[in-house]
Amino acid sequence: MTEKFIAGRLPLAVAATLGLFATTFAAPPALAGECPNDQVAANAMAPVDTGPKGVTDDVLASIDLSSKGGDWKGNALRLRKLVVQPGGVVPWHAHDARPANILIVEGAITEYRSSCKVPIEHKAGEVTAEFGDLAHWWKNNGEKPAVLYSADILPPMESDADAM
């Protein structure tokens, strides 16, 4: 049987062999920006008492969710841009009442999480979800600014200035 090579395509037998080779010998995918399973533990890292350092926190947009009534009264959905300079710190804070999604768009930043025994490195292009029994702080250990976008739900009685 002859196999026909079509521009840009491998013959089926070659493609299948390469696929089998790749799945047999490839390393398992790394979970970027997550705590390694063997390092997860309750109260793995103690709170650090530091204020913000070398970080700007600009609210780009905010939506008052009160019109939705009920449990939404007093909450706000906001989008922020944080720029953390080299050596800069986002201080220790909790997410039990303030869920957030963080997108790292430039640079890298290290997270020190209450539920992880080791620091977690987050690189540009990664997203991390913050919610529940989580407290942490961040530090830019790199040589260039880290730029992050944060979308979070700000609970009642908490001001923009109080919540990094």
Rank of each mutant, 00 (worst) to 15 (best):
M1Q: 12
M1T: 13
E3F: 10
I6H: 10
G8L: 09
L10I: 03
P11F: 02
P11N: 08
P11D: 04
L12S: 14
L12C: 01
A13V: 11
A13K: 12
A15P: 01
A15Q: 14
A16I: 13
T17L: 15
L18N: 13
G19L: 05
F21C: 10
F21D: 10
F21A: 14
F21M: 14
F21I: 13
T23M: 05
T23H: 03
F25T: 11
F25I: 10
A26F: 01
P29M: 06
P29W: 03
L31Q: 12
A32M: 07
A32T: 06
G33L: 09
G33P: 08
E34H: 09
E34K: 07
C35F: 11
P36L: 15
P36E: 14
P36H: 15
N37V: 15
N37S: 14
D38S: 15
Q39E: 15
Q39W: 08
V40S: 09
V40E: 11
A42G: 03
A42I: 13
N43Y: 11
A44Q: 13
A44C: 11
A44S: 12
A44N: 13
A46P: 06
D49N: 11
G51A: 15
P52E: 13
K53M: 08
K53R: 12
K53P: 00
G54F: 04
D57G: 02
D57M: 07
D58S: 08
L60Y: 03
L65F: 00
S67W: 01
K68F: 06
G69K: 04
G69M: 03
G70I: 04
D71R: 12
W72N: 06
W72A: 14
K73Q: 10
L77H: 04
L77Q: 06
L77G: 09
R78N: 14
L79E: 07
L79Y: 08
R80Y: 05
K81I: 11
K81T: 10
L82R: 14
L82T: 05
V83Y: 04
Q85F: 01
V89L: 04
V89H: 02
P91N: 04
H93Q: 01
A94N: 02
A94T: 01
A94R: 00
D96C: 02
A97V: 06
A97W: 00
N101H: 12
I102C: 03
V105L: 10
V105Q: 08
G107E: 02
G107F: 01
A108H: 06
I109D: 02
T110R: 07
E111M: 09
E111K: 05
Y112R: 07
Y112E: 07
R113F: 09
R113I: 12
R113S: 15
R113A: 15
S115W: 11
C116S: 06
K117D: 04
K117V: 05
K117I: 07
V118C: 05
V118P: 00
V118D: 07
P119D: 09
I120C: 05
I120S: 03
H122V: 04
G125R: 10
G125T: 12
V127M: 09
T128I: 13
T128C: 01
E130K: 00
E130Y: 01
F131N: 07
F131K: 10
G132A: 13
G132D: 11
D133S: 10
L134T: 09
A135R: 08
H136T: 01
W137E: 00
W137N: 02
W137A: 00
W138L: 12
K139N: 06
N140Y: 03
N141W: 00
N141G: 08
G142Y: 02
G142C: 03
E143Q: 09
P145A: 11
A146Y: 10
